[in-house]
Amino acid sequence: MPSKKSPNPIDIHVGSRVRLRRMMLGMSQEKLGEHLGITFQQIQKYEKGTNRIGASRLQHIATVLKVPVAFFFEDAPGTPEEAAKGFEEGKPATYVVDFLSSSEGLALNKAFVQIKDAKVRKRIVDLVKSLADDEPVS
């Protein structure tokens, strides 16, 4: 019996962007599923990239999440934008998506963007950097 094929990197990326946007809106997998007429388990599979999202379904997801379809492909592996980066250091989009996909990252981001004073925001960034420097390396 052949082994199950691993998910395509584009499907994983698109799924992670669906999850990111859903979490930014504070929407549950169940609620997104209700809007689309599918189960939250199907949403989980889409977000992990284990199930590919068809074009019409992706358009519907974009409408529900209030973003253009192109949002899901930003910084996707193999795109011309990514190829143009060449040998740049790391992939910043990956850690940003990971950070914003966590409940702590999302909460921190929502609170941070509500701070109007640029000096205060800079001091918070400086504080977080100093705290990160104090962390022992495991």
Rank of each mutant, 00 (worst) to 15 (best):
S6K: 12
S6A: 13
P7E: 07
D11C: 01
S16M: 10
S16K: 14
R19Y: 06
R21D: 01
R22M: 05
R22A: 03
R22H: 05
M23S: 10
L25Y: 07
M27R: 03
M27N: 06
S28I: 04
E30Y: 10
K31Q: 12
L32D: 03
G33W: 02
Q41Y: 05
Q41A: 12
I43C: 09
I43A: 12
Q44K: 09
Y46I: 05
Y46H: 13
K48M: 14
K48E: 15
N51I: 10
V69S: 00
F73W: 09
E74W: 02
A76V: 01
A76L: 00
P80G: 02
E81Q: 10
E82V: 14
E82R: 11
A84C: 01
K85Y: 06
K85L: 13
K85E: 13
G90R: 06
A93F: 07
T94S: 09
Y95D: 14
V96S: 05
D98H: 09
L100F: 04
S102P: 03
G105M: 11
G105T: 08
A107V: 03
N109D: 12
N109F: 15
F112W: 03
Q114N: 13
Q114L: 13
A118I: 08
V120A: 13
V120L: 14
I124V: 15
V128S: 09
S130K: 08
A132F: 09
A132E: 15
D133Q: 13
